[in-house]
């Protein structure tokens, strides 16, 4: 959806945004489980190449938001567009094929498959060698471990494989659910570096659900706090006082 700089939006459509469609547009989205509304009327617009961190305590609807966008959970209200394509009613595999990489918080790897098979499953419509080159650029150690079962990797290595897998697909939009959970500081730093570099090289858009505040503010351009399913506060990461504003929602 790139727009040539010379073209101006027609003035006959005044309500139309002058910008290209956001990489992810969420309007009035409500979702949840069996009658329980967990996410209420959430609005989000993430521009191409932008990184947004969604923060909040457990049980506030962060994971539910991602699952609803992916189509794993029914949308009770609202709509989702991905790079301008209507994706509200699509099933998860169709959403994924729009160039969306989803990294779930739990059980996101096939433990009994090898590293290589885990990568292959995610990569479609793209040369596998190119995908491996991408893995090499981010986590070269994985290339030596291609034949190893993913379940035998350490916790940190599994998270790195997850990140590598979603980058290897060439996805335009990544939805990442608490990749930092339970990780050593060194691994977190490494993930942060890879995320920033991937954005620089490919302009990948990302929505990171996080509880790790320093990581989130270091990596993301903008942040939003989800409280009981609603966006309670939002801002830019570089603003002064961002940390305190978020912490107010996170801690006791």
């Amino acid at each position: 959806m790139s727009m040539p700089p010379t073209s101006t939006p027609p003035t006959s459509m005044p309500r139309m945004s002058p910008h290209p469609a956001p990489a992810l547009g969420v309007v009035g989205l409500s979702s949840g489980y069996a009658g329980a509304v967990v996410v209420r009327e959430v609005n989000l617009a993430i521009g191409a190449g932008e990184i947004l961190a969604v923060l909040g305590k457990n049980g506030m609807g962060k994971s539910t938001l991602l699952k609803a966008v992916m189509g794993f959970l029914p949308k009770m209200a609202g709509s989702v567009t991905i790079a301008g394509t209507e994706a509200t009613r699509l099933s998860p595999h169709r959403v994924a094929r729009l160039g969306v990489g989803y990294v779930a918080q739990e059980k996101a790897l096939f433990q009994d498959l090898t590293v290589e098979e885990n990568l292959k499953l995610a990569v479609r419509g793209r040369d596998f060698a190119a995908a491996l080159a991408e893995v090499e650029a981010s986590f070269p150690f994985l290339l030596q471990r291609l034949r190893q079962r993913a379940g035998t990797l350490s916790g940190g290595e599994q998270k790195m494989l997850l990140m590598a897998r979603s980058l290897a697909t060439g996805a335009r939009l990544l939805l990442v659910d608490e990749i930092t959970e339970g990780l050593q500081p060194s691994v977190i730093d490494r993930l942060a570096g890879v995320i920033r570099s991937a954005r620089e090289r490919h302009g990948t858009t990302m929505l990171l659900v996080e509880q790790h505040l320093p990581f989130a503010l270091a990596v993301a351009d903008r942040w939003a706090v989800l409280d009981r399913g609603e966006i309670a506060e939002a801002g830019a990461s570089i603003e002064t006082g961002a940390r305190e504003r978020v912490l107010k929602h996170l801690s006791v």
Partner: peptide
Amino acid sequence: QGRIVLDGSVEEVVASELVKQVYAGSGHAG
């Protein structure tokens, strides 16, 4: 991570840096 890190009154927990770290995410595996 499967262990009790603090057992105390509400005030003690609220005041604890340790708990802040657990929740803010800077107190991870270690």
